[in-house]
Design a protein around this nucleic acid. Structure first.
Length: 295
DNA sequence: AGCTCGACCTGCACGC
DNA sequence: TGCGTGCAGGTCGAGC
């Protein structure tokens, strides 16, 4: 379920349940996620205190009082469910409502138990997610984080950065924006949505937008729309497609605001545009756009 | 250096 | 009903 807004939604939910608390226990039911969990994962987390949970791109970073950082990624289908102590399943969300809390679902791979008995369950059918432990001092050189581009909601991401980054990119605008080295956190949905709002064709060569002067106008528009769409999605609690976006079992609702994603054949919603949303495949992934108003 | 593609997994919707 | 096919929010590494 993870693009930046979904991961941020999860982070906020987990932070409330975990920050400032000790791990009373960790149960690993399956260690073979995208990569095997590091040796002694449970033992290295148990007894530690989670000081702060932050986010970098689509990664969650759990800073612990031992100087180690838990690095988490949800892959395509990973999700966390928080089960508060001494509450019936009804109150903890519909996800666990109809199955007894002691019977773990087959894809519940890792369970964290906090000192207040809150259980935090990581469920991931496809097992594209990962968990690792990295020393805080080595975080910046950590293989999976070191090459990431700027945060799209951060100050380093602006039109002049894009102009520079696009200069040598002969690939499509769509593929360029999905490249986490260029900008970190965008995924298939929000790239489609941002390009639609910016009225830019996903098929354009990225380098066609590079260069100064007049060329900065569409880049500025693109930066604005990327930020807007991410901010709106975060405010909506992310998008819920096949999975739950929120740790409490409630659904994010941004999917109801999609203008193009998964809307093949529907009319374009731009005022005055009579186009129809098309679906094409770029780099093996679906792209949804309006060829009438995106250029 | 940059680009494309296959691989990693499971589940679900669809058509026959 | 059952089975095959294609598709899904990600990303790493191989090979060009």
């Amino acid at each position: 379920m993870p693009e930046l807004p979904e991961v941020e939604t999860v982070r906020r939910g987990l932070a409330e349940a975990m920050e400032g608390r000790r791990f009373a226990g960790v149960t690993v039911r399956r260690a073979d996620l995208r990569f095997p969990l590091p040796a002694g994962f449970a033992a290295r987390v148990r007894g530690r205190c989670l000081i702060r949970l932050s986010r970098r791109a689509k990664y969650l970073l759990g800073f612990m009082n031992c100087g180690e950082v838990m690095v988490l990624h949800l892959g395509m289908s990973g999700r966390f469910t928080i089960i508060a102590p001494h509450k019936c399943a009804k109150q903890t969300g519909q996800f666990y409502h109809d199955r007894s809390s002691e019977a773990a679902a087959i894809h519940d791979h890792v369970v964290f138990i906090m000192e207040d008995a809150t259980r935090i369950v990581y469920n991931d059918p496809r097992r594209f997610g990962m968990m690792d432990l990295v020393r805080k001092t080595e975080l910046s050189s950590y293989r999976l984080l070191r090459d990431l581009g700027p945060e799209p909601l951060g100050g380093d991401f602006d039109a002049s950065y894009l102009a520079h980054a696009f200069k040598t990119r002969q690939t499509s605008l769509k593929a360029a924006l999905l490249d986490q080295k260029l900008v970190a956190g965008l995924g298939n949905i929000y790239v489609c949505e941002a390009l639609f709002r910016a009225e830019l064709s996903p098929l354009r060569t990225a380098s066609s937008l590079a260069g100064g002067g007049e060329k900065m106008v569409p880049l500025k528009r693109l930066v604005v729309t990327i930020r807007q769409v991410l901010a709106e999605a975060i405010a909506a609690g992310g998008s819920s497609l096949r999975d739950y976006a929120c740790t409490d079992g409630r659904l994010g609702y941004f999917q109801h605001k999609f203008a193009v994603y998964d809307r093949e054949g529907k009319p374009c919603s731009k005022p005055g545009c009579s186009g129809t949303i098309k679906r094409i495949v770029q780099n093996g992934r679906s792209t949804f756009y309006c060829s009438a108003c995106q250029h």
